[in-house]
Amino acid sequence: MSISNEALRKVLLEIEQKSAFSSQQLGIVKTQLAAKHRESRMLQLTANEVGVLPQGTQLYEGVGKMFIQTPSGEVVDRLAREKQALTDDVANLEKKRQYLETTFKNSREHMDRILRSAGPM
């Protein structure tokens, strides 16, 4: 059973669009992952610096254009919560990246298989 050239072109175009979309989304996810890793590193460095300060050291957090004195325990807790949120975000982005990579790979394989089975046009 042979597929008409028009139907074949339509299927190839659809697969090509899906592949291009996956590739574009993959680039976006990789950029987001890099940003999350940088943010995570900054949080870790901040937590390390706050951790070595003597007990009772006054800490100030920026809020808009002003600074508010905050107990060190609250700062450490906030940093831990932010770190956990970033870890969750990274895990979700990694799942999305794997899905997009699989989709892209499968689209390319389907396109190659269709082109090989169709022969010369």
Rank of each mutant, 00 (worst) to 15 (best):
E6M: 01
E6N: 12
E6A: 09
L8Y: 00
K10F: 04
K10T: 09
E16R: 13
E16W: 11
E16H: 11
Q17N: 15
K18N: 10
S19I: 02
A20S: 12
F21P: 00
F21A: 08
S22G: 12
S23I: 01
S23L: 02
Q25I: 08
L26D: 02
L26N: 07
G27C: 00
I28N: 01
I28C: 01
K30R: 15
L33T: 05
L33G: 06
A34T: 11
A35E: 11
H37L: 12
H37Y: 15
E39A: 14
S40D: 00
R41W: 00
R41M: 04
M42K: 14
L43M: 05
L45P: 01
L45Y: 08
T46D: 06
T46G: 00
T46R: 05
N48F: 06
V50N: 02
L53H: 03
P54D: 08
P54Q: 04
P54A: 12
G56Q: 04
T57D: 01
Q58K: 13
Y60Q: 14
E61Q: 14
E61K: 15
E61C: 03
V63H: 04
V63E: 14
G64W: 05
K65Y: 12
M66C: 07
M66Q: 15
I68C: 03
I68E: 01
Q69F: 00
T70A: 02
E74W: 02
E74V: 08
V75G: 06
V75T: 06
V75K: 11
D77W: 01
D77G: 03
R78P: 01
R78T: 11
L79H: 05
L79Y: 03
A80R: 09
A80I: 05
A80Q: 05
R81N: 12
E82R: 15
E82A: 06
E82F: 02
K83P: 01
K83Y: 09
K83N: 03
K83C: 00
Q84G: 01
Q84D: 10
L86T: 02
L86Q: 06
T87W: 07
D88W: 05
D89N: 11
V90G: 06
V90Q: 14
A91L: 10
E94K: 13
R97F: 05
R97H: 10
Q98D: 07
E101F: 02
T102G: 07
T103K: 10
T103N: 10
F104R: 15
F104W: 13
F104E: 09
K105M: 08
K105T: 02
N106Q: 14
N106L: 10
S107C: 13
S107E: 01
S107D: 11
H110E: 12
I114S: 05
I114C: 13
I114A: 15
R116K: 13
S117H: 07
G119T: 08
G119A: 03
G119W: 08
M121D: 06
M121A: 07
